[in-house]
């Protein structure tokens, strides 16, 4: 098992009232799964993804990731854990505008202190795999949305994570670009990468092996 959420609650206090963002979430994810999280706006999809990605804390419950108890870990160890095993893909790509495609890909490796030659090899490998060798010296603004998201996924993949978390990865793309990205996810999943995506579209959700529906922070 890759990860297990047990009775996860998350809330905020607003005006003396406790507003639940996540309510009693129980979720087991096995390696190689491709899960789609669906639900209306404000149902807690992104919050759930952030909790799984260890970017956000939760208030109650237990979270096991590869036999580590995330809820018992200190901030720093948690960061090390997600650095090692999780890659993030965002709706608005979040590439760094001042860096070229190549430099954007290189960044996670820099933070993992991968040595120079090895880093170059990995970047070259990734450029090759995504067929963007010709664009390696361009800046994000010079790319189309689809291409930018391609770079975003490549960046998420470069440190060979076990899990990819994608928050509406096709939300800013047209349907053709979206389809290409989803095909890519499917292919990655077949290669063994576990994927959890948040999406609004039934069509995209269908790429997944399993769909979770959220409503007002609760799994339905």
């Amino acid at each position: 098992m890759l990860l297990q959420l047990k009775n996860i609650f998350k809330w905020v206090n607003s005006g003396g009232q406790r507003i639940f963002l996540l309510k009693d979430i129980n979720l087991n994810v096995h390696e190689g799964e491709f899960i789609s999280v669906m639900g209306p706006s404000g149902s807690g999809k992104s919050t759930l993804l952030n909790v799984i990605g260890m970017l956000d804390a939760f208030d109650e419950g237990e979270y096991q990731f590869l036999d580590e108890s995330v809820h018992d870990l200190r901030e720093k160890n948690r960061a090390n854990l997600y650095k090692e095993y999780i890659g993030f893909v965002f709706q608005s790509y979040h590439l760094l505008d001042d860096l070229t495609v190549k430099e954007n890909l290189e960044m996670p490796l820099l933070y993992k202190k991968v040595k120079g030659p090895e880093r170059k090899a990995m970047v070259a490998d990734m450029l090759d795999r995504f067929n963007i060798v010709g664009k390696k010296d361009l800046f994000p603004a010079q790319l189309s949305g689809g291409q930018q998201q391609l770079v975003g996924i490549a960046r998420a993949l470069i440190s060979s994570p076990k899990l990819i978390l994608a928050d509406e990865p096709t939300g800013n793309l047209n349907s053709k670009q979206g389809e290409e990205i989803m095909e890519l996810f499917k292919q990655l999943n077949q290669e063994g990468v576990t994927i959890i995506q948040v999406t609004h579209s039934e069509k995209n959700a269908a790429y997944g092996s399993r769909t979770i529906n959220l409503l007002d922070g609760r799994m339905v």
Binding site: A79, K83, F88, H94, L96, M107, Y111, K112
Partner: peptide
């Protein structure tokens, strides 16, 4: 972004 990608 940098933090998500692992910057301390």
């Amino acid at each position: 972004v940098r933090k998500v990608l692992g910057a301390s």
